[in-house]
Simulated scan of single mutants.
Amino acid sequence: MSDVIKAGAAPKPVGTYPHARRVGNLLFLSGIGPRDPATNEIAGNDYFADGRVRSYDIATQARSVFANVRAVLEASGAHWEDLVDVTVYLTDMARDFKAYNAIWAEHFPDIDSAPCRTTLGITALPTPIAIELKCTAVVRD
C-alpha cells in the first residue's frame, strides 16, 4: 500500500504523476525542477523574443530546485535531513557541474549527514530547465 503526496507549495507536475509516493517509511519523489510554484516561471531563465532560452543561471535554478524539493518533503511529513539518495540531472555537465556542486555544498555542508548523490549529464529535460532532482527519503514517524 502507498500514499500519494500532492504538495500545494511545489510546482504542479508536468504530467500525470504525483509529487511523491510514500511506501512504508520510504518516500520517493518524482523528478523536480526549478519552476516557481506560484507562476510556473522557470527560475534563472532569460528568453529571446520568440520564447527560446537565451541563457540560464544554474545557481538560481539549483536553489529553486532545492526549495521545491523541500516543499514536497514537508508536504510528505519528511524533512531535508531525511533525504538518503538524490539523482541529479544536468543538461550541461561541463558548464554547470562546478557551480551546482558549490550550491550542493551550501545545502549539505557535512558529508556525514549528506545524502548519497549521483549526477548525470543528459541532453534535455521535458521543459526548458537545466537541472532536475530525483530524490528518496526516509520518513521518521
Rank of each mutant, 00 (worst) to 15 (best):
G8N: 14
A10T: 03
A10G: 04
P11E: 02
P11H: 00
K12T: 11
V14P: 05
T16C: 12
T16M: 12
P18H: 10
H19W: 07
A20Q: 03
A20V: 07
R22M: 11
V23S: 14
N25V: 00
G31D: 14
I32C: 12
I32H: 02
P34G: 12
P34W: 03
D36M: 12
D36W: 11
P37Y: 06
P37D: 11
T39P: 01
T39L: 07
N40D: 15
N40K: 11
E41P: 04
G44I: 02
G44M: 02
N45Y: 06
N45S: 09
D46K: 14
D46G: 03
Y47C: 08
F48I: 00
A49P: 07
D50M: 07
D50G: 07
D50E: 13
D50L: 04
G51S: 05
R52K: 14
R52A: 15
V53R: 06
Y56D: 09
D57W: 09
I58G: 02
A59G: 10
A59E: 15
T60F: 02
T60R: 13
Q61C: 09
R63M: 08
F66E: 01
N68Q: 10
N68F: 02
N68W: 06
V69I: 15
R70H: 13
R70I: 00
L73M: 10
E74Y: 08
S76A: 15
S76P: 04
S76W: 08
S76V: 03
W80C: 10
W80M: 08
E81C: 11
L83P: 02
V84F: 04
V84I: 15
Y89G: 07
L90R: 00
D92F: 04
M93V: 08
A94D: 15
R95C: 01
R95G: 02
D96Y: 06
F97I: 05
F97Q: 13
K98V: 11
A99L: 15
W104S: 02
A105C: 05
A105F: 06
A105I: 01
P109R: 06
D110V: 08
D112N: 13
S113D: 12
A114E: 04
A114Y: 01
A114N: 04
R117G: 05
R117V: 13
L120N: 13
L120Y: 13
L125G: 00
P126K: 02
T127M: 13
I129E: 15
A130G: 15
A130M: 07
A130F: 08
I131S: 06
L133K: 08
K134R: 12
C135Y: 01
